[in-house]
């Protein structure tokens, strides 16, 4: 009985006035969150580049601050704010969270860390756990990305504790795109290299201020299975939008594996060229190989409002068209 009395004494009597205050505070906080959630993205659409990204990134930060302030104002209206009471309530709450909502709280805390460390921001193209897409919204517990096939994926923030997060543009306005090409073995490797260089150079998506790098290998790499093998099918290299067919009739298009590989090569080139804007890698087979496999990757600009999938497929169409005509 004494324990019950003590527990009850922790809380204040919730009068109608107190409830009204709490309602008003919560309502104001909600209005501010919704208002900033609409105003800042609207404002961000008026800008381009970093100002847009910073404005978008400030939305979850402001939301967190508003919620924290609202809780700070509401708690003294519910609990008698003595040190003992606060300790008891916070301890009980922590225990409950620890057992019942461990994952949820972990995501919340990771969300706060994400706001500080910026592993991703709205507008970034990230890959987490095999899901690759553009960050559309950073919530309290999850980050929402939209993949190239227009699927929304909700990724809990807690992934940042123990999973690798690949960010393709890291707040910038450009990133690398990659596409596979399968060519007949009797193609002249030097001519293909020259042509791919010009194809990249003539793409309007290209960031011309960045250097163009072209490299030619003399053997097929392990990361690039032989296109003639049965497992090299159209499904192995997913065609998301606007599939195109090469001379051999093989459906090809931008895919995750190709993209990751291109990104890795880009990092290697970065050591020599600062930032590898365009990477063209043509792999020339051995004499007994049946085909020549080429990969082209180039840094392209992207606009915040259009679907990147279309751009990638449009770029790919240009690349493929350029090869066909030669």
């Amino acid at each position: 009985m004494n324990d019950t009395d003590t527990f009850v004494q922790i809380f204040r009597a919730l009068t109608g006035e107190a409830l009204l205050d709490i309602g008003l505070i919560a309502g104001t906080a909600l209005l501010l969150i919704v208002g900033f959630g609409r105003l800042l993205p609207w404002l961000a659409d008026k800008f381009h580049g970093k100002p847009r990204l910073y404005l978008l990134a400030s939305v979850p930060l402001l939301r967190m601050l508003i919620i924290a302030l609202a809780l700070l104002v509401i708690i003294p209206r519910v609990i008698e704010p003595t040190p003992q009471n606060m300790l008891a309530v916070l301890g009980a709450a922590g225990l409950a969270f620890g057992f019942a909502l461990k994952e949820y709280v972990s995501s919340l805390i990771a969300g706060v860390v994400a706001l500080h460390e910026f592993p991703y921001r709205p507008g970034d193209w990230i890959e987490v756990g095999g899901a690759y897409g553009e960050v559309k919204h950073i919530g309290m517990r999850t980050v929402e990305i939209v993949t190239q096939d227009d699927t929304v994926v909700f990724i809990p923030h807690l992934k940042i504790w123990n999973e690798q997060i690949a960010n393709a543009n890291d707040g910038g306005s450009h990133l690398q795109c990659a596409a596979d090409f399968y060519l007949q073995p009797d193609h002249d490797a030097a001519a293909v290299q020259h042509l791919l260089h010009d194809v990249a150079l003539s793409s309007p998506y290209l960031q011309l201020d960045m250097p163009v790098s072209v490299s030619v290998g003399t053997a097929l790499g392990d990361a690039l299975p032989h296109p003639g093998l049965p497992h090299r099918s159209s499904s192995a290299v997913p065609v998301r939008h606007g599939s195109h067919r090469s001379r051999q009739g093989r459906a090809v298009g931008p895919g995750h594996r190709c993209r990751r590989r291109a990104r890795g090569i880009g990092r290697r080139l970065s050591a020599h060229h600062g930032r590898a804007a365009v990477l063209v890698q043509a792999r020339v087979p051995e004499r007994d190989a049946e085909c020549l496999d080429a990969t082209i990757a180039l840094t392209s600009r992207f606009a915040p409002h259009s679907a990147r999938a279309y751009r990638v497929s449009a770029l790919y169409a240009r690349l493929n068209r350029g090869l066909r005509t030669n």
């Binding site: 010009d198 150079l201 003539s202």
Partner: peptide, 8 residues
Amino acid sequence: LRHARGLD
């Protein structure tokens, strides 16, 4: 022309 065949 800024085309793959327009620069040679």
